[in-house]
Design a protein around this nucleic acid. Structure first.
Lengths: 379, 379
DNA sequence: CGCCGACGGTTATACGTACAACGTCGCACC
DNA sequence: GGTGCGACGTTGTACGTATAACCGTCGGCG
């Protein structure tokens, strides 16, 4: 190592402004605190090693450290010193202070993901996909799982993580527009009408196609009386889904569709299905459910009414959650590439942050036929 | 070896900023036009309003703004000016720059939550609970869902969110010890042996009691041959659970326990259950499953083998996930207060950050009897 | 020989905030 | 009439980083 190396320093600068006592030759020490739990309020993070420490160890200036570690040296730093610096950084366990970097750069390398609820498997997977892409770009993701009570205290722009470079929001978390207005940040919307968008880009699943595939599957099996268990979510994607289903059914002579509002839970799905299946007239032979949760509830309803799935009634789900293969029979459902949604959303946002204009994306979905659908009973 | 002890401070300011109040007299150089990918690197966040802007608007100094907005004015600022400042801040839509604050304070008000996987409903709920408490303290939470491939690029201390005040880690994400060593950060461990702990505090569920309750339930129903479908996780909590189960069964004369390794998925649960139930000798009348996922698989196995649940074989789960009530029959299971785990963990961490010493916590669990258990068949 | 450009660094800021250390002004008190 | 003092602010930094603007040195070239 190039240890000492006298390093001439500007010992003193006659203060031009004559600030009183401008000496204050800052006590350089402050190393090796016993680090009690005390944590005096104003004290800087204890033993944090800074780029200046690395510079001192490597016998170069702090600027050089920054250049080397930032890979910003076309020909500015020789390979020899670069290696010295890197070694010093490694030895000292140097980690750049992100707060300082963010302050300097004016960018936080953090984006916000606004989802209705994280406990939803779907959005947990969206997060996973988004996070992976973000990490590849050196970005972090914070969540804003817009909960029931979005009090001011939970407003992401008041919260501790408020400094953001961009936002990805699901249309199912309706506060998104507020956010973008407040923040003026680049916004990517998920599951939202590309036309209507206040967003710079949208990422969608081809929900309509999923509905068509499912409807086609049921109709091809011979079903003519289909009930739609409609989730109680006022979101664009659900409207699209309902319309596509209606059109597909309407396209087949003799086929009829009825719609039954349901909630979002197994229990509500069960109740809705019981209403439909217990209906006096000729009951539907197939239940098109807006998601797997409702479908699971529908299966329970059928069983309670003494009907077998799929022999007496077919049931389809949507989303292909883990649940879909946990129940008996396994659900015929539409597989949604949730991770891909998150990843595409994040890619679009990264494109946006680089100053380019991303494309709106529509991701394909796929019907997965399983045991919950069969031809309708004879009678 | 002390370097030249005097950090000479540049006491002289060339020409710029001579007059107070003149500050940056504009010239922002923000070129209009189709912002090419250029995005001038050093450019500050566009229209961000700073505390200095507020100060200017309110006719006070920046320091005063900081005092007022920080509620740090015992008698330093008159109510009149304070109100003026607050009004100005409101009008301008001032949001403090967190990067700058963190830099100044040496604390980021961000903590890391290390979980095995977010798609697990359990940990999603843990996160929810933790986040809520953190938000109450003005902290943010970032996730480190230690995935399969924890490459260096995914190391949280290299990642963009690396500046942390503390860590909460589940013992199921084994990297935790590495983290604490690297970071030297306050650490709270979840589901980990309180004795062994490298952690400053632990939060646990009373898993042993849950196992005892479940075993007691099964034994009280009359079951004497119990199989344990053991999840393939090498974690303290699973050992505790297994031992508690074994002891409870051993405490009843004539009762026998066998253990069958399973994975973590429905499919693996099904296969493990099929192995156990198809076993030549007298097959178990009850299956104690390490979680609801496995239990769902076990139910499927039973059905495939022509056995009815619970008439021919009882099945119990663990966790009380949404899944537990989605399957038929609904699972007898142990309800784990996942949100409470996250909340307690975060509270412990906050205590730690305040310099106090938190208690180790053990949260109670509760058996929820449902339809998947019944007395064993007669024969 | 003197000038130039490239190379390999260095110095000096600025980012926005929080706070320590100073004024300053009016008033009471001795 | 100082002097002290409390109320009310202000000035001046420093936090750690990235980068613009320099600067010395050396080899080549006109």
């Amino acid at each position: 190592m190039v240890a000492s190396a006298g390093r001439a320093r500007p010992a003193d600068r006659p203060a031009g402004k004559g600030a009183p006592g401008s000496g204050r030759t800052g006590e350089p020490a402050r190393r090796e605190g016993p680090d009690g739990a005390g944590a005096a309020p104003g004290r800087p993070v204890a033993g944090r090693v800074t780029s200046r420490d690395v510079a001192r160890a490597a016998g170069v200036s702090q600027a050089t450290v920054s250049l080397v570690l930032g890979d910003k040296w076309p020909g500015r730093v020789s390979e020899r010193t670069a290696e010295t610096v890197r070694a010093a950084a490694r030895d000292l366990g140097y980690r750049p202070n992100l707060a300082a970097r963010s302050l300097r750069l004016g960018r936080t390398r953090t984006v916000l993901l606004v989802v209705p609820a994280l406990t939803t498997e779907f959005f947990a997977r969206v997060y996973t996909g988004a996070e992976r892409v973000a990490a590849d770009h050196g970005f972090g993701v914070v969540l804003y799982p817009s909960p029931e009570g979005v009090g001011p205290a939970r407003d992401p722009f008041d919260s501790a993580r408020a400094s953001l470079d961009g936002v990805i929001a699901s249309s199912m978390a309706a506060d998104a527009l507020t956010l973008v207005r407040v923040g003026g940040l680049p916004l990517v919307m998920l599951d939202s009408d590309p036309d209507d968008a206040a967003a710079a880009a949208t990422v969608n699943l081809d929900i309509a196609d999923g509905a068509r595939q499912t409807a086609g599957h049921l109709l091809a099996l011979g079903h003519r009386r289909v009930a739609h268990l409609a989730a109680a979510v006022d979101s664009w994607t659900f409207h699209v889904r309902a319309r596509a289903l209606a059109e597909a059914v309407a396209g087949v002579p003799g086929a009829a569709l009825c719609t039954e509002p349901a909630g979002l839970s197994v229990e509500e799905g069960r109740r809705a299905a019981e209403r439909v299946l217990a209906r006096p007239g000729r009951r539907p032979t197939a239940l098109f459910c807006d998601d797997d949760i409702l479908a699971a509830g529908a299966c329970k309803a059928a069983r309670r009414l003494g009907l077998r799935v799929p022999d007496d009634v077919s049931v389809t789900g949507f989303d292909d959650l883990a649940l879909a293969t946990a129940v008996e029979p396994e659900l015929t459902t539409v597989r949604l590439p949730a991770e891909a949604v998150g990843a595409a959303g994040m890619r679009a946002l990264m494109t946006l942050l680089e100053g380019s204009t991303p494309q709106d994306t529509v991701l394909p979905v796929e019907l997965v036929p399983r045991g919950s659908t069969a031809p309708p009973p004879r009678n």
